[in-house]
């Protein structure tokens, strides 16, 4: 594997390889000195053209735990405001010595384009509403560590599926690893075309609630127009929010996940957010190890092919 651009088309073996590596990196992060010299001398550039704190910090933490150096590109303080293009930014960072580029952009396909322009591995850290592969890997890791395996799990992804790259990459990873995925949303928050998606669809949260092992909540993406998918926020909360009453009806072993940042009182009640059955902080912790696995695989052992 040369780049990590999408979960689509990835085999179960490739996904499990990342999860197996990440398991070992979690052990590294638990050590008194949570750092290994593996990528000493390599430089990882993070290019985030969209605001993001946790994903960028997680990648940078992962790079530093492997002893790589980090080049941080922040558009707010950069020449993007002077009109520099994505291509020129990528070529500039490459010329400065970046050995791998982590790209987030609001346009679908941005990371693919960067991968055509530079001769180093590119990791897609989110392109528009398209893909967010490392989120899918860390979520799969979180589920595998909690349940032992994903085979047979029933995962309900709830909310603004239409604008969610987390949902697109997540559902592909979960189903490749053997889980059953149900998308739970009003028709207005579902993609227009879901041909070939390995999912079931439910428009009524309460219909499937008691059958779920995992409730994966999404944020309403107001910046991508998600708030136009329903009449009012209270209406959304009433129909699709995980409130205390719905939480009480979940199976006792069911867990709650959220990619963050979460809106307490909207898709998740404050009580649920703080419950011991939410894996939200596990997701954050596992994210660092998952990204270490990706950086390691792409920089230390590229292997053959693309």
């Amino acid at each position: 594997m040369r780049h990590l651009l999408t979960i689509e088309g990835m085999s179960r073996e490739e996904l499990e390889d990342f999860l197996d590596l990440a398991d070992e990196f979690l052990e590294v992060l638990d050590r008194p000195i949570p750092k290994v010299p593996t990528l000493r001398g390599a430089t990882v550039a993070t290019m985030f053209f969209e605001p993001s704190t946790r994903t960028r910090l997680s990648f940078e933490r992962a790079a530093r735990a492997l002893s790589a150096d980090v080049l941080t590109f922040a558009p707010a303080t950069s020449s993007v405001t002077k009109g520099e293009s994505l291509k020129d930014t990528a070529l500039t960072l490459r010329a400065m010595g970046a050995d791998l580029m982590v790209v987030r952009h609001s346009a679908t396909g941005a990371a693919h384009r960067v991968a055509q322009w530079v001769d180093v591995p590119v990791v897609n850290a989110g392109d528009g509403a398209h893909q967010h592969p490392t989120q899918a890997i860390l979520d799969s890791l979180t589920l595998r560590r909690h349940f032992g395996k994903l085979d047979g799990l029933h995962v309900g992804i709830v909310g603004d599926i239409r604008h969610s790259r987390v949902a697109r990459s997540g559902l592909q990873a979960f189903s490749t690893l053997g889980a059953r995925v149900t998308l739970i949303a009003p028709p207005t928050l579902l993609p227009l075309d879901m041909t070939g998606w390995p999912v079931e669809v439910a428009h009524d949260f309460d219909d499937v609630l008691a059958d779920l092992d995992v409730v994966y909540l999404l944020r309403i993406q107001q910046e991508r127009g998600g708030a136009t998918g329903f009449t009012s926020l209270p209406e959304y909360v009433r129909r699709f929010g995980l409130d205390d009453a719905r939480f009480a009806r979940l199976r006792p072993e069911a867990v709650v996940m959220h990619p963050g940042p979460m809106n307490r009182g909207v898709e998740i009640s404050p009580h649920v957010a703080d419950s011991s059955r939410t894996l939200i902080l596990d997701q954050v912790r596992n994210g660092v190890a998952a990204r270490m696995a990706v950086l390691f695989r792409l920089l230390a052992s590229p292997g053959e092919g693309t």
């Binding site: 390889d17 197996d20 590596l21 070992e24 052990e27 590294v28 390691f296 230390a300 052992s301 590229p302 292997g303």
Partner: peptide, 9 residues
């Protein structure tokens, strides 16, 4: 080519 990692404990 680095292969998979084994356990350290």
């Amino acid at each position: 080519r680095a292969t998979s990692l084994a356990r350290t404990s």
